[in-house]
Design a protein around this nucleic acid. Sequence first.
DNA 1: ATGAAAGCGCTAACAG
DNA 2: CTGTTAGCGCTTTCAT
Lengths: 330, 330
Amino acid sequence: MEAVPYGGTDLATEPEEVSRLKSTRRVNIAEVAATAGVSVGTVSRVLNESPNVREHTRTRVIEVMKRLNYRPSRLAESLSRGQTRTVVILVPFLTRPSVTERLAGAISVLDNEGFDTVVRNVETPGQRDRHLAALTTRHEADGAVVVSLRLNSEHLAAMRSGSVPLAMVDTEAPGVPCTVVDDIRGGSLATEHLISLGHRRIGFVGDSPDEFGFVSTRRRLLGYRRTLSAPPTAIFAGSDTQALGVLAAAEKSGHSVPADLSVIGYDDIESAALLGLSTIHQPLTESGARGARRLCALIRGQLVRPLREELPLSVVARTSSAMYAVAGAA
Amino acid sequence: MEAVPYGGTDLATEPEEVSRLKSTRRVNIAEVAATAGVSVGTVSRVLNESPNVREHTRTRVIEVMKRLNYRPSRLAESLSRGQTRTVVILVPFLTRPSVTERLAGAISVLDNEGFDTVVRNVETPGQRDRHLAALTTRHEADGAVVVSLRLNSEHLAAMRSGSVPLAMVDTEAPGVPCTVVDDIRGGSLATEHLISLGHRRIGFVGDSPDEFGFVSTRRRLLGYRRTLSAPPTAIFAGSDTQALGVLAAAEKSGHSVPADLSVIGYDDIESAALLGLSTIHQPLTESGARGARRLCALIRGQLVRPLREELPLSVVARTSSAMYAVAGAA
DNA sequence: ATGAAAGCGCTAACAG
DNA sequence: CTGTTAGCGCTTTCAT
């Protein structure tokens, strides 16, 4: 490892060692073995911390690896071992806070389990199809977790015949391990909360139905419909993000929350607490973590049970919802 | 591809084809070649859409690939080609909206360029060191983009001697392509905005300095300090998320915004617009995209210029900031 | 247009 | 404890 100028360097002459690729010939395990005067097998052993290496040998090999700036190829290792130690996670609309929290949960456990996580973001039907197809068409990871996206029968059939280890989060399919919540019940919980506060005219704000294969919002709407059907002194938003929109709109139009209007959201994203938004809490990070954990089990060849696991929902009453003061109907 | 029961199936008997790994022996290119009665070379050619394959042959090979449910190994392809077509992106606090937007920007261009993106989330110094080390210690990707994390001289030296293609976003290092904004100026812009509104006593809310190697907030603070130094009729928050916290706190304590208190944030995350938060806009998605684009250039062996690129900042006045009404000092 | 064969960089089984 | 060697599954000359 040569000394590299840093920090104290004259900044006038912009050092640019990294701005262009130095075509340093990659040194491989054979080269290390050769210059250390041992076999590749031995180098491999020190690489994998095998106990069967004389301390002296190990030291020498390590020294050579350092000197040659050797970086073992994960690719070669994977190919040889027969597993990629990589998992793909397919998410829709990565920037949505609820999605991000799930993603973070998944990455965290995957990282701990020694997997790299390739994330694929889906924002159009085209991307969805392309990425879903890639999952079964080529062998690029040890498994995949699909978040919030619905698989059609073709996809499913392909996953099966290709036997691609798969776990789903916030969406389900027959025969696939999935981690979900009961969104219909969630819709009811939200509506009931408002009703218990004396509201009788409750509005709903959400995605236009069937917009993009998302199933959650529609089901929440269903829960709302089942619980009530008249218009607003309170609003139930299909997601916290939409609830924030409602909050802003209310303020803009001079309505104060919760005095004039109660608002309840859904998800309990991080900023909901920050803003005092009442909401239906669902274990976002946890769902991603569990999905990942189940995928790992699957990859290990374990049987995942129960196939469908349901996480609990709860209402979190904060400051955006309050008793209906004006004329609480009996 | 065998027919797989789906949908119409009796759900009482939970089908569980995917809940356990079917040990379907992987079919490889040799097997395809053998059963199609051609050489592996030919199969490889149809795989890569080489024009040098008789139409008839191609059709037959494709038919066999389907029938055998052949999935080419990306690993083997990469090893053979000598490139992973994978990029690592290192981000701190993945769930922060500003980070997520950058990530989305990067993933988007990387995806278009045919790269898989492995994301590594850093939430502790330990993770930071481990992931940073992994970048140089092993060869697992064609390059890396580092977001908002500071590299010390050791890391830098390692990146260089290992000649790991690297691009940085929202952070900089000598000799490395970076995409940044002028946070000091950002701090000034925010403060000036408030001052132009008649405010003279302006508070700052931000991270405790030097918490975790983050540089941005501190620099914004510096910009604020340089512009002013007395206490509050208005508040400048180091990030939009923190500004939202201020909004909530204000409301909770009965202060109305902007009547009693003006608030300006920093970043212009998606929900800022939603909530009418005044803020300093910085091109978040764009920064991620540019970082990714530059990394791609680097990987292609191109010279990246200028090494340091600065994206523009602008103030976005929304409804959370207003003229200081009470007693605007002259 | 197609086949044969030499890698790519590692792991692991086997010998010693 | 260490060396040898056969793969892992593909791409890619080089022949033909």
